[in-house]
Amino acid sequence: MLIVQLSDSHLSADPARRYRDVDADTRLASMLARVARYQPDLVVVSGDVSDDGSTASYQRAAASFEALGCPWVWMPGNHDHPATMTEVRALEPVIHSNGWQILLLNTWIEGEEGGRLGEAQLVRLEAQLAGDESPALIVLHHPPVSVDTAWMNEIGLEDRETFWKILGRYDHVQAVLCGHIHHEMTCLHQGVPVMSVPAIAAQFVPDRPDFAVDACAPGGFRLIRLSIDDTQRPRLSTRVEYVPV
């Protein structure tokens, strides 16, 4: 099974409006043209689909994803408006495919840049992992770990300690994917790979104490191949493909 993770397209109601001095719609079109070459089995969009939470931006994004001709799902980021997203396309909490479970978590907090899962969703996460021992891939917008950018750590996942306490009780979690940080990152936390993906729109400069945008940096998407081998062991391989500006 081949999954493509996309994130942070930051579209607006007006297609001509630029996001941090880049043409978000043009970048999305270029990204999806490259994605289409791989004929993925599933596309997962990990938040900040819209920059203004407008119906028009979600309709345009949904039409673009639909044109890929494969199943796709999205989840909200801090710039999104979940209720408006849902009017265009439902938010799905879990997908089962090829012996895997893919858990799609909502970290949106109204009016805030940081994220939170909240008690009810954490209870559901534990119940899902306890009740289904198939290998799990977890996707959320906000990174559940410290990253290499100090200001970004202030707007990460608030309740990550509880999140990791839950994951620590279940060894069938194979990886965690996130967006939000607008560049590629990979680390291990409690033995679980945590990976971000470059933004579709503008990239942020890592390793800086203050906010900065690299307008020349390419966007990208993550390819994730999931399988179960002959010994019934889960296999996950992944890489990021960059798409020149």
Score class of each variant (00 low, 15 high):
78 N>E: 06
124 R>K: 13
77 G>K: 07
108 W>V: 02
100 W>T: 07
81 H>E: 13
109 I>W: 01
123 V>Q: 09
81 H>P: 02
111 G>D: 04
102 I>V: 15
101 Q>N: 10
102 I>S: 11
85 M>P: 11
97 S>P: 03
99 G>V: 04
119 E>T: 13
94 V>A: 04
92 E>R: 10
119 E>I: 01
92 E>S: 12
90 A>M: 14
79 H>M: 13
115 G>D: 06
77 G>S: 04
75 M>C: 07
99 G>Q: 12
125 L>M: 05
122 L>T: 02
75 M>F: 02
87 E>N: 03
96 H>Y: 09
105 L>H: 01
103 L>T: 14
111 G>H: 07
96 H>I: 12
76 P>I: 02
114 G>V: 00
107 T>R: 08
86 T>I: 06
78 N>L: 11
117 L>H: 01
78 N>Q: 13
117 L>V: 07
81 H>N: 14
91 L>H: 04
91 L>I: 12
89 R>I: 05
105 L>I: 00
82 P>G: 10
118 G>N: 14
126 E>I: 00
109 I>L: 14
87 E>H: 08
92 E>W: 03
109 I>D: 02
114 G>Y: 10
94 V>F: 01
73 V>F: 04
100 W>R: 04
117 L>K: 01
113 E>T: 11
106 N>S: 11
82 P>Q: 06
96 H>L: 10
83 A>G: 03
80 D>L: 07
116 R>G: 10
109 I>R: 12
92 E>C: 11
112 E>Y: 04
117 L>Y: 00
102 I>M: 13
97 S>A: 06
103 L>M: 14
121 Q>A: 02
111 G>T: 09
79 H>W: 09
84 T>H: 11
124 R>M: 07
81 H>V: 14
115 G>N: 11
85 M>Y: 08
116 R>E: 15
79 H>R: 14
124 R>S: 12
82 P>V: 05
75 M>T: 08
102 I>L: 15
110 E>N: 02
126 E>L: 00
125 L>A: 07
113 E>M: 10
82 P>L: 08
85 M>A: 14
83 A>D: 15
97 S>F: 04
121 Q>R: 07
120 A>H: 06
74 W>H: 02
95 I>W: 04
104 L>A: 03
88 V>Q: 04
101 Q>M: 13
116 R>L: 12
78 N>Y: 09
78 N>R: 14
83 A>Y: 12
107 T>N: 01
117 L>Q: 00
103 L>G: 11
83 A>V: 15
106 N>G: 02
89 R>M: 04
121 Q>D: 11
83 A>L: 14
103 L>P: 04
